[in-house]
Write a protein that binds this DNA or RNA. Structure first.
Lengths: 149, 149
DNA sequence: TGCAGATTGCTATATTATATAGCTATCGCC
DNA sequence: GGCGATAGCTATATAATATAGCAATCTGCA
């Protein structure tokens, strides 16, 4: 009486919202797998690339950009610092700017290679003629709803 | 020295994988908000619509279809049953088929309306000329990689 | 200039989704 | 008849995310 999933009616398979979730989940698993050899989770790798692109940003700045709550940035940054991938440069007595260390810079090079390979793998699944429409659709859905936070 | 997120360089804004995650997250929050008045989370609402479309499926069947682990289906189904939205019909002494109760059926009608409104809201953000390419792109990324599970 | 209110980094905690391990009872099939 | 697979379930682990609150510090305005 076991029913194979393929034999069941899935009323959701045409729903963009459902597909979006499934696609995102699959991509996240693939990315996490790719980053595992670097001992980084996707959020950590992302923060490192943002620090490279915006040296001396505070962790609040980065949290705002990536929509990571301040409370969750603290342990994340702390772990990166304890691995000596980043350093905290004092900005004032309350905050500090984050910069990559030498080993952070070399790790970011590997992260960017992993990201590029990951994105390449995703794009390859989509016919070239659809890629621009696909990406601009994602941008429209990902857009923040104009709250300054 | 506060940097507005808009002033920072975001090296990820052209990455489909990153956009996918942001879009999916935004859509999930919107859907959860829409379902909150029904006291349902997205997964529960989804399971109810699948039961309607596939009456008498076992919870293992449904878990396979939606990729929800058996271990996590148990409490989910149990909660729906305790709210008398579904009933368990014995199939054999080991498993049972799930069917909607009367109140489950009327709730599913409201769920489907909420889903339709949600999907409509998502689609409206995408130019009509891009929608087909967008959806087929999502389908390509969401596709399971041919493992029988 | 001095103070009120905002911000920073942080801890602690709660919620939710997801994943693994393992258990018993039962089923299907050879 | 019995072995391996499956169903449902509990307990537990991991992770991402969210809120509350706190002390130190900063900023801007009266």
């Amino acid at each position: 009486m076991l029913k194979a999933a393929a034999e069941m009616i899935d009323p959701l398979n045409r729903y963009p919202g459902y597909l979006l979730r499934r696609a995102s989940l699959a991509a996240m698993v693939a990315l996490a797998t790719r980053l595992a050899p670097l001992d980084l989770r996707p959020g950590e790798a992302t923060v490192l690339t943002v620090i490279e692109a915006n040296p001396n940003s505070t962790q609040s700045d980065i949290g705002r950009l990536l929509e990571i709550a301040r409370a969750n940035m603290a342990p994340l940054v702390s772990r990166l610092a304890s691995r000596e991938l980043i350093e905290r440069q004092p900005v004032d007595r309350r905050s500090h700017g984050l910069v990559l260390t030498r080993s952070g810079r070399s790790l970011v090079a590997r992260i960017k290679a992993a990201f590029a390979a990951h994105e390449q793998t995703l794009l390859e699944k989509i016919p070239a003629s659809h890629r621009n429409a696909f990406i601009s659709g994602l941008q429209a859905l990902a857009e923040k709803t104009s709250n300054g936070n």
